[in-house]
């Protein structure tokens, strides 16, 4: 294993460079990953199963040893013990001892994070309340549902008031209300200046909370950048028509051949144009106006994160891992 360190201070909360990991000399989980997470931002890590997301997170958290890794986490080399005290971590499929009660669990992990006793009590009470688990504080964890475990796990990750929060599938098993609560909490934490690294399969969730994302495939970062940049590309335009529907239908019928020739199609009072050229949009508007139709709005149709994801993955890709050698 080669661990190369740099102690250089950067503006990145997480600056992972050239991270490699091969399991049992066969499965190449990471093949030179570069990921940068800015301080105070919410960063989404995406990718299909086996793409290497969890391995990357585990390397950051010293759970897995990299074959090679350069870079820093909170300005210190990867694996720096002291800095782990400034990170909150919620692993995927976490399992907590069933014999502990909610408040005992927070106290235990708080102590392992070296939070002083008095502060632990305060933090435990605060976070149990904040994640909606106050009434369950004295109940043994073996009685908890999956969603409750996720909430408690989140509280556990926040016990040490971390600068960086690493969450691996935080809404797994959580009902829609719980998901919204977690989303609101993440937004609030971002407002407090905390950096959040979110590893999730739920693209809609990532889209709602993340500033930047990285899409991983076969042990590499296939695409990385601000969410708005990734979804900036215009796929076409939507022209919404105004006026009465019946009258519009008759007018559109008379110009249907011309619309088809332009590549436009009509869907429920909206004309969709699959062209990215602004000149074609203007031609379409002219045509519609000449036909006596009123234009209510014109808006570009951009890529959704799901479309970006599918595009990066390529058609027919179901497994994100690199082939074993």
């Amino acid at each position: 294993m080669t661990m190369l360190h740099t102690t250089e201070l950067t503006n990145w909360a997480v600056d992972l460079i050239d991270v490699h990991k091969t399991y049992r000399r066969k499965v190449k989980a990471l093949r030179g990953v570069h990921v940068q997470v800015g301080r105070g931002e919410v960063f989404g890590l995406l990718g299909p199963n086996g793409a290497g997301k969890s391995t990357l997170v585990k390397i950051m958290m010293t759970v897995v040893h990299p074959d090679r890794a350069l870079g820093t986490v909170l300005g210190r080399p990867i694996g720096h013990r002291g800095k782990l005290g400034r990170i909150g971590y919620l692993p995927e499929n976490h399992r907590y001892p069933g014999y502990l009660r909610g408040e005992q669990l927070l106290d235990f992990y708080g102590a392992l994070s070296k939070v002083p006793r008095v502060q632990r009590r305060k933090n435990a009470a605060y976070w149990l309340e904040r994640v909606g688990m106050k009434d369950w504080a004295g109940t043994r964890i073996r009685e908890y549902s999956k969603g409750m475990m996720q909430r408690l796990g989140l509280a556990q990750a926040l016990m040490n008031d971390p600068e960086l929060l690493v969450l691996d599938e935080p809404t797994d098993g959580v009902d829609p209300v719980g998901r919204r609560d977690i989303r609101l909490l993440l937004t609030e934490l971002k407002g407090q200046g905390k950096t959040i690294l979110l590893n999730s399969h739920l693209l809609s969730e990532i889209e709602l909370v993340c500033d930047r994302v990285a899409i991983m495939k076969e042990g590499l970062v296939a695409r990385q950048g601000p969410l708005r940049d990734l979804t900036e590309r215009v796929l076409g335009y939507r022209v919404r028509l105004g006026g009465e529907r019946a009258a519009n239908a008759a007018r559109i019928g008379s110009m249907s051949e011309k619309l088809a020739a332009m590549g436009a199609r009509i869907e429920d009072h909206v004309v969709q144009l699959a062209s990215q050229e602004i000149g074609r949009v203007n031609e379409l508007i002219d045509l519609l106006r000449a036909g006596g139709l009123l234009i209510e709005s014109v808006e570009p149709r951009r890529l959704s994160l799901e479309e970006v994801f599918v595009e990066v993955l390529g058609a027919g890709s179901h497994v994100g891992a690199a082939r074993p050698t």
């Binding site: 585990k58 958290m61 010293t62 759970v63 013990r81 002291g82 800095k83 782990l84 005290g85 990170i87 971590y89 692993p91 499929n93 976490h94 399992r95 907590y96 001892p97 992990y109 392992l112 994070s113 070296k114 556990q156 690493v166």
Partner: peptide
């Protein structure tokens, strides 16, 4: 074995303890 169970060990190793 309980400490090293999958899902449990990750949380502990993520704490500032060697």
């Amino acid at each position: 074995p309980a400490m090293m169970e999958k899902g449990a060990i990750e949380v502990v190793l993520g704490k500032p303890i060697g």
